[in-house]
Amino acid sequence: MSSLARAGRHRLALAGLVVIVATVLMALLAPALAPSDPIKNRLIDRLTPPAWAAGGSWTHPLGTDTLGRDVLSRLLYGARVSLVVGFASVAIAGVLGVVLGLVAGFYGGWPDDALMRLGDIQLGFPALVLAIAVLAVLDASLLNVILVLGVSGWVTYARIVRGEVLSLKHRDFVEAARALGAADGYLMLRHILPNVLAPITVVATFSVARIIIAEASLSFLGLGIPPPAPSWGAMLDEGRNYITTGWWLALFPGLAILLLVLGINLVGDWLRDALDPRMERGI
C-alpha cells in the first residue's frame, strides 16, 4: 500500500473524527453558542427562512421552526439528545452484552444455553414492534427511549464475546492462570476482556450510528423524545411535512444526522481495519 493511499484512508477517518468532536463541542457549548432559547415559542416568527434566503434575518441564522423556535439553537441542544441517546444506549447494550457473553462463554452449560436462546428469541422479534409495545407500557421519555434502544441491542455483543471466550478459554495463558488459582472474575477481567475489547469497540461504533437513526425512526412513529425537548430525529420528523413549504426545517437536522452518522461510520471503518480486519465475520 502506498503511503499516499494510507494517508487517504486516514484522512477520511480524520474527517469523521473532526465531525464527531465538533458535534460533541456543539453539545457541550450549546448554552454559550445558541442565539436563543430552544424551547420558548414565538408564533409570530413562525417559519422564518434562514438568514441568506429571502425574508430571513441573522437573528435566526438557520431560520425558525413551526412554533417560531430558532432552528440553530435547537440543533445545538439537539446534539446533546442525539449523542446521549446514541452513546448511552450503546453503553447499556455493550455492558449488558459483554457481561452476559462472558458468563455464557466462560461457564457454558445451562447459563450459556439459556442466554443464547434468549438472544435468539430477541432477534426473532421485530425490533420496532418491541420498541412500540414497550413504549406503550412505559411513558415515552428520554430515559425510556434510551433503555428500550439499549436493552434490545445486547445480543450482538454477547455473541461476539462468547465466541471469543470459547476460543480463548483453553489457550495456554488462561489455563496457566487458572492453574495458579486465579478466580473466575479475575480471569475474565484480566485475560479475556482485553482480548474482546477490539471487536466490541468496532461493533459499538457502528451501533452508535445505527441508534441515532433508530431514534429518528421512533420519532417518525410518534414514540421519540417527548416535546418540547429538541432532538434531531424529532426535528427531522417535524420537518418532513414542510419539505416544500419550509425546506430548512428538515434540511438542517437531516444534514446533521447524515454528517454525524457518516463520521461515526468512517471512524468505525478505520477502527475495524486497524484493530481486526476479520471481525465482522463471526457476529
Partner: peptide
C-alpha cells in the same frame, strides 16, 4: 483498494446508510 473507486463505492454506500429511511424515501 484505497484508490478513488474504493472511496467512491464506500462513501456512496455509507452515505445511503447514514440517512433515516423515511427521509431517504421522501
Amino acid at each position: 483498494r484505497d484508490r478513488a473507486p474504493d472511496h467512491l463505492s464506500r462513501l456512496g454506500s455509507l452515505f445511503l446508510q447514514s440517512m433515516p429511511s423515511f427521509w431517504l424515501g421522501l
